[in-house]
Design a protein around this nucleic acid. Sequence first.
DNA 1: TTATTATGACCGACAGGTCGGTCATAATAA
DNA 2: TTATTATGACCGACCTGTCGGTCATAATAA
Lengths: 211, 211
Amino acid sequence: MPKIVDKKAKADRIAEAAIRALRKNGYAKTRMADIAEAAGIGKGTLYEYFADKPAIVRHCFTAYFETFARGMNDAMESAPCPADKLFALLSFALAHALEWEDHCAVVIDQMSCERAEEERAFLTGVYDGMKALIADILSQGQEDGSLDPGFSPETMAALFVSLYDGVILQRLLQEKPLDAAGLSSALSRLLRQGILAEKQDAKQKKGGAPC
Amino acid sequence: MPKIVDKKAKADRIAEAAIRALRKNGYAKTRMADIAEAAGIGKGTLYEYFADKPAIVRHCFTAYFETFARGMNDAMESAPCPADKLFALLSFALAHALEWEDHCAVVIDQMSCERAEEERAFLTGVYDGMKALIADILSQGQEDGSLDPGFSPETMAALFVSLYDGVILQRLLQEKPLDAAGLSSALSRLLRQGILAEKQDAKQKKGGAPC
DNA sequence: TTATTATGACCGACAGGTCGGTCATAATAA
DNA sequence: TTATTATGACCGACCTGTCGGTCATAATAA
């Protein structure tokens, strides 16, 4: 009888518009009216699809974190040895950040601005998982002898995660786009010549596959 | 006549209280009343010393950026060769971040939350200067042969700055304190075995001074 | 010494404005 | 007609910055 709308799909569309608005001005400065306008609907309609402002952000994040988690898993499984796993992870993370640029920005914004304990805990969990994953790979590499045994896997993992965040943060501050290829190759060089236990003396510049 | 107060000194004291309050809840969620309370003065008095909320933040930043700039200069001049300069810079930056932890947090908060063009431009300038400085050192190192010529100084500098930001950001998200020593040594390892042109084959673990 | 006066420091009530969320009503499709 | 969806005027909580007035102390003069 009534006009039936696909609530789920429409919520997705609204969230898509919301993320653009949030990216533009940050969570605190983005009003519900802005989001509604961006989505091309009335302010009241927003509340047909979301309970409140935080709910919109949460909805925005689900797809982002889902693809991230899945991609990280895929990247890990696609590589045979720890060192390659690590490279795959880092390069996927960078590519993902590039693809989901707006979402990244809003996540960072939430990290530093939003002090709600619930949100903090969620983000902390995501990061802890990421660190644990990387630390685990590093450990494996140290055990099988492909990685330098002289560093702490946890600390080095924290360093990588920090680097990832920092790149996004810099991207957020500066308007000019990310030089993903350049950063990736610089990082790769740093890693390949830095953390591999055995260096190929002469042909070190274009080191082949570490496995 | 009335007791004459040292306005400048009092403004400093207020700013000191303000930075604690800002650190705790973030710029957007910190009310002027909170700052006044933290400083132990009335809300109206606040406006005797600062024009508005942004003015307080600006005042907070001046000392922070001054000490940072001076420290970076000192660190640079204290080291004889490019590689050592770089290590000195990075380790000073980390130490400074630790010492000015609250300020760092507020700066990061501003970077991601505050969209006022003026503030952005200022922060962008600071970061550009930092990147240029590091890129310059890297270039010198490449020219004098002490650093691997195979990377782009600008990109690598961007990577370092990002890393610095990321470390602070992670510190901000997680409540547990920064393991400065661990991070520093991990980074040092990464650098020493990563960007130096000549690797000391056997005794690579505890590489001596690069000069 | 002491009463008087001048003035900067201080304050909190309040005006003005913003923004998240609600609700009565309109529009729409079955 | 009726169930569902859409809407923007509206409300109230909250927050920033202002303003009139009070207070403590220094300067002054008797």
